[in-house]
Nucleic acid binder design. Structure first.
Length: 347
DNA sequence: CGTCCTACCTGGAGGC
DNA sequence: TGCCTCCAGGTAGGAC
């Protein structure tokens, strides 16, 4: 179940394995995998063929690989069609529930759930999109200006660990975010794929504005977990890390957002950054073999989860058995003692 | 518009 | 052994 840390692990793998390489071919083996690419498989392949892949970017659970400028003949054709601007294009990916981006030897047999295969002109390792449950997808999309980009950004220097205290996982996460967002965007216009223009920044991004998030929560009439899972408010957080962040910040999933204080919002955000940063350090979370990095390896973070999947096991703080509630058609794990149910819960 | 619900998928686990 | 049901859950789109 790839959430932000798992997607970041994949982004890094792509960065080292495919950046700078030129696409030889793109083969769509299952049309559902590109269902959000409206022009269909042939157009998808045509837009990738011959293009060089630039450094991969990520927002929340979305990953994209900007493409260098297409040949001028393609530009002229698009201008004739009158439909596209030329702020650039990117290969956009969402892994859904079970998507994997794998690099491997081109002569390896096709995986059972191989959906898209991309080969390169250098004849080296190919890139495969494998997805059992087909909730993931790929598309080639136009890049547009990021409406969430902050005009007066926090200096990257804030990623430094304050003197006199131990370096925490949250510090690591902020440093990582500053490095990969800050460095790459210096001097360049910030852009995101059009299809995800509505996806809010994730809490490890510089573009994430804590006050904006707090004010949005105060205006909402819903529970905190619903809000954490709402990618238009905050991205990258899924069911696992939502439960972990709430456990760490001692907040119940049904706590009404309009009653949250600034301090509580700061607490849950810090918790989210810490837990996702710690997961990143060990290569992400995996429960089965469905989530893997580009080399097919699983992470180890499931050994460090405090709430998720731990029904009836003792809470690591107080020993009370962890409780499982069904809500939004999925499981929520919490400690009945550390995370008391609010008097007026919002389900 | 805000809020909430459901369809979309496959395969592993567990009941009988 | 086989057949059935449940479960995992991110997102778009629709209902209200």
């Amino acid at each position: 179940m790839p959430e932000l840390p798992e997607v970041e692990v994949v982004r890094r793998g792509l960065e080292s394995w495919v950046t700078g390489r030129t696409v030889e071919s793109a083969e769509v083996l299952h049309p559902r995998a590109i269902r959000r690419h409206p022009a269909g498989p042939d157009d998808f392949a045509a837009r990738l063929t011959g293009r060089r892949l630039l450094a991969p970017r990520r927002r929340g659970k979305y990953l994209w690989v900007p493409l260098d400028d297409p040949p001028s003949s393609v530009i002229m054709q698009s201008i004739d069609e009158g439909s596209r601007d030329h702020g650039g294009e990117a290969l956009l990916a969402h892994l859904g529930m079970s998507g994997q981006l794998l690099v491997g030897e081109p002569d390896q047999p096709f995986e059972k759930h191989l959906r898209v295969r991309i080969t390169f002109t250098d004849g080296g390792l190919d890139l495969r999109f494998v997805d059992q449950r087909t909730f993931g997808h790929l598309m080639v999309d136009d890049l547009v200006a990021d409406v969430f980009a902050r005009t007066a950004r926090t200096p990257v220097g804030t990623a430094r660990t304050p003197a006199g205290r131990a370096r925490t996982a949250a510090d690591t996460a902020r440093t990582i975010a500053a490095e990969h967002v800050g460095a790459e965007c210096a001097g360049a216009e910030r852009s995101v794929p059009e299809a995800i223009a509505h996806i809010a920044p994730d809490p490890l991004e510089d573009a994430f504005d804590e006050e904006v998030f707090f004010q949005a929560l105060r205006r909402r009439h819903t529970g905190i977990k619903r809000a954490l899972l709402d990618q238009s408010l905050i991205s990258g957080v899924g069911n696992i890390y939502a439960d972990e962040a709430l456990w760490r910040s001692r907040l119940h999933w049904a706590r009404p957002t309009e009653t949250l204080t600034r301090a509580e919002v700061a607490r849950v955000l810090t918790a989210a950054r810490e837990v996702m940063g710690a997961a990143l350090e060990v290569g992400g979370t995996s429960f089965d073999s469905l989530y893997v990095n580009v080399n097919g390896e699983s992470g180890y973070f499931d050994r460090s989860l405090n709430a998720y999947g731990r029904q009836d096991e003792p809470c690591g703080r107080c020993g009370t058995p962890i409780r499982r509630d069904v809500f939004m058609n999925r499981s929520s794990y919490s400690c009945p003692t550390c995370q008391p149910r609010p008097r007026r819960p919002r389900l």
